[in-house]
Design a binder for these strands. Structure first.
Length: 205
DNA sequence: AGGACGATTAACT
DNA sequence: GTTAATCGTCCTG
């Protein structure tokens, strides 16, 4: 194992909503060039929760059948689903639930904890803006296409999540997901975005 | 083959 | 509040 606290595959083998909530306070680590870059997860969103249809979720494209892009989502839990969007941004998700279900959790914001000097070189801004958005955190941690499909629970993983701070239910807030655009109701308003209350690193949108 | 658009961000009025 | 940047993916024909 990379760390005694590295989350096992069983952690991810639950509904996306459950995993999204339990991921708050945990630490995402990218082991890059022999050094740890990472931070505490403070915001996450569930997509294609359990077996409910979720239009607008990538897994619902192509009539709910896997495509080359979404294949990883349909695979077993505990793997990274990394995709490219808007012609310039990378997004990091963890695959959850049962194999074949296309469930995933988007990591939307972190509190920087390790490798700050690397993040600083990659992002010319005040520290609180380094990782307060899904495409900002991937840039800060150096997450790109080669991590798509990477195992998060393996003994020699290069990216994984560790148990860290315990966040109580009363410190967690929930609300509609961000940036859904044309996603129809009821999914547009489903409260599947979770974040730590009063945390300065949560995305502002 | 072609076009619309995106789980976003930074810059500008 | 509005908009450009920038290109892979999916849907239509």
């Amino acid at each position: 194992m990379r760390s005694p606290r590295q989350l096992p595959q069983t952690f991810y083998a639950r509904s996306a909503r459950t995993v999204a909530r339990r991921l708050l306070g945990a630490r995402l680590v990218h082991f890059d060039q022999g050094r740890r870059i990472g931070g505490r997860i403070v915001e996450a969103e569930a997509y294609c929760d359990s077996d409910e249809p979720d239009l607008g979720c990538h897994g619902s494209a192509n009539k709910g059948r896997p495509t080359s892009r979404t294949a990883v989502m349909f695979g077993p839990p505990g793997f990274a689903y990394v995709y490219f969007t808007y012609g310039m941004h990378w997004m990091f998700n963890v695959v959850t639930g049962a194999e074949g279900m296309a469930n995933a959790v988007l990591i939307r914001a972190l509190e920087p904890m390790e490798g700050l000097e690397v993040m600083a070189k990659r992002r010319q801004r005040p520290e609180w803006e380094w990782t307060n958005g899904p495409a900002k955190l991937t840039q800060a941690l150096g997450i790109e296409r080669e991590l798509n499909g990477a195992s998060l629970y393996g003994a020699d993983s290069v990216i994984w999540i560790e148990a860290d701070e315990v966040v109580g239910d009363d410190a967690i807030a929930a609300g509609p997901r961000i940036g859904l655009g044309n996603m129809p109701e009821p999914w547009h308003s489903m409260p599947w975005r979770f974040w730590i209350r009063h945390n300065p690193y949560v995305s502002r949108a």
